[in-house]
Nucleic acid binder design. Structure first.
Lengths: 241, 241
DNA sequence: CGAGCCGTTGAGGGGATTCAAGCTCAGTGG
DNA sequence: CCACTGAGCTTGAATCCCCTCAACGGCTCG
């Protein structure tokens, strides 16, 4: 296991430790940079803490920063031509959001904290500079972009397709991917509705029935434990029967 | 209006003319390159013609090339966990597809020609080389990637949301964006179904009724003319009433 | 001419929405 | 202490939309 150099451990910038921790997990965008380059950038990156409901950026804003999510969940949502909210993607630990800021474009969707969130705010100008001096960064950026495409298409294929029960089951799978200790975050029914294009009532009925079937069990109002084998079984029977 | 230099007009590489034409329209990925650089790349790029139904790349393939669509429509589709086809995006003139090849990743969705297609096949290795020597290309690449994200999220928000009629109307709008002369390509009912997650019968019923209402009128089996104002009106009434 | 594909239309059933009522729970103030 | 309130969740009943099953017509092609 790599250890953090001493001079970095008690650095004047607490951000240095945050960046180093990310690097350890191999999830940092700046993982490819060498240590001296890393030391330069901490000052520009802010580790922000956001309570549930905070807006990282809003629709139409000309973005000045990108964010890497460190903990918690962020939803990316937009307003349809019809006028209702539609969640198009979820971002969790390690995900990069707001890339469009790099292109000086305005955001087409809003990023809202679904849970308390810690994120690293990376100014656009920093990345502009870095990408000149460190072209090896580009590959990481492209990878993040591709991951956004894949995540969005995955969402379309599994969470926006088929009967309501199937969509809820797949949402639970998706939420489980982001759960660290077996306990997953349960969105409110209205939020699940915005994610799956269902009404509050339908969502509630399905969640209740899954609870009765033992697929999920409540931990508290916002968290539940998931019985993955049962969920898989439910999905199989759903997809064939 | 810019004219193509003589030496390029009767170049040994017919591709030179194709590339120049794209550049004229400002849609070329390589638009930022200067002319000598352009001359170098023609040899590597192939202008391919594909009949309806051709597969540009398939799910799971390790991609070796990217494609810019010059004419026609390409659908990007994948197979859901449930086992059915789901179209997640359409690509038309000027769109770049298959970027994941750059990252040496395998394709997560298949690209299939919906109509006769002309496309430029750009080998991965060419772009690898170019991005070293011409870092200004990166911005264009990132823009294309962002466009893929936006297109996929747009698809999710408008074509996968709400009642069937609304979804069909929005699909027609999307198809109209790619129509050059007021005549748009009408997919088969089964394809529209795969795009909107509807059955053939439901799709057929809605299309028929739109025809009766005068929103669309057939040109031939595969093409129709669209009355945009009526479509807009139909959408308004759909979304409010 | 029959076979097969595609689109259309009908009838019936099922699943999601709508409308409505009741529930729990936290916060508030009498 | 407890009624009051409002927000969020649940459940029921009726309606409507979409799917399923089925039949039929137009068209191409062997």
């Amino acid at each position: 296991m790599r250890t953090i150099p001493l001079y970095r451990q008690d650095s004047r910038h607490p951000q240095a430790q945050a960046c180093a921790a990310c690097r350890e997990r191999g999830m940092a965008l700046f993982g490819v940079l060498d240590e001296t380059a890393l030391d330069d950038i901490h000052v520009h990156i802010a580790d922000v803490e956001l309570p549930t409901g905070s807006v990282l950026f809003d629709i139409g804003e000309r973005g000045h920063a990108l964010y890497t999510v460190r903990t918690g969940m962020v939803r990316l949502e937009r307003v349809t031509a019809r006028g209702d909210r539609r969640v198009v993607r979820l971002a969790g630990r390690g995900d990069l959001i707001g890339q469009e800021a790099l292109l000086q474009r305005s955001h087409l969707d809003a990023a809202v904290a679904c849970t308390p969130v810690r994120a690293c705010r990376i100014p656009r100008t920093l990345l502009d500079d870095l990408s000149d001096r460190h072209p090896e960064l580009m590959r990481g950026l492209m990878t993040r972009w591709q991951e956004a495409v894949e995540s969005s298409e995955q969402w379309l294929a599994e969470l926006a397709t088929g009967p309501a029960r199937r969509r809820v089951l797949h949402l639970l799978l998706e939420l489980a991917r982001h759960a660290d200790d077996g306990v997953l975050w349960m969105p409110r029914r209205a939020e699940m509705g915005a994610m799956l294009d269902l009404t509050i009532e339908t969502t509630s009925r399905i969640v209740s029935s899954l609870r009765r079937e033992g697929v999920i069990s409540d931990v508290d109002a916002q968290h539940a434990r998931l019985d993955v084998p049962r969920l898989q079984a439910a999905l199989r029977e759903q997809d064939q029967g």
